[in-house]
Design a protein around this nucleic acid. Structure first.
Lengths: 108, 108
DNA sequence: TCGATATTTCGATAATTATCGAAATAAAGG
DNA sequence: CCTTTATTTCGATAATTATCGAAATATCGA
């Protein structure tokens, strides 16, 4: 894992609309969600969402496939796992980073 | 953990010099490192580094204390742990995000 | 107090990133 | 084909972020 790669992933998630979009895809699960449905759910203009999805895609955090007229985006769970593993290894002093919050916390 | 908080933390780390600075502090351990020593190690102008340290500080990822003429910065390991826990919980589909890389990976 | 050292704040500028309507592209179904 | 639907690309602009020298602030030791 290159620092460059991690920086792009962090930068992709460090934006209100993109974090919301990514989380929506996480909720949607492996089947993903069409761009139009995302735009409606997030109340964003289609072109703005497209811009953000491109960023997430370039960061390798999401994938896409065409289905008829729609383009279905989906979270790349393994990619996110890789980023988290890298951060855990390199940015937590090699320790466990404890105390960690209870696993019921929800991003509000 | 508020989304706002996570976004600030991610944004703080999503920058070449800041990620390097943070990692330097992780390496330095709990005793931390003086701003001047960091500037020399990272080959950055003092005022530029100060700007970045302020960002990391506002994100809650580092702490600081004065020691004579120096200001010693140190990583807040618990804060980083909180961010990682939050991401793990909310951005990995509730699953284990596996397969994760071997724990020997180093951020290059 | 004075001079030297350590760091931050200021200010101007450059560079990057975000927004969003309009036009372009792609596919489906008459 | 032509129209409708879905999405992206373009282009202009606004907003945010990064850079770094110079000036200001704080501390130490003589």
């Amino acid at each position: 894992m290159q620092a460059d790669h991690v920086i792009r992933a962090l930068g992709a998630l460090a934006q209100e609309h993109r974090l919301a979009a990514y989380r929506l895809l996480v909720q949607a699960g492996p089947d993903g969600m069409a761009a139009g449905a995302m735009a409606r759910a997030l109340d964003l203009p289609a072109s703005s969402l497209s811009f953000h999805l491109t960023q997430l895609s370039h960061a390798g955090l999401i994938g896409q496939r065409r289905a008829g007229r729609s383009i279905i985006y989906s979270a790349d769970f393994a990619a996110m796992g890789g980023v988290l593993a890298c951060l855990t290894e390199n940015c937590c002093g090699g320790a466990e980073c404890l105390p960690c919050p209870a696993p019921t916390a929800i991003l509000a």
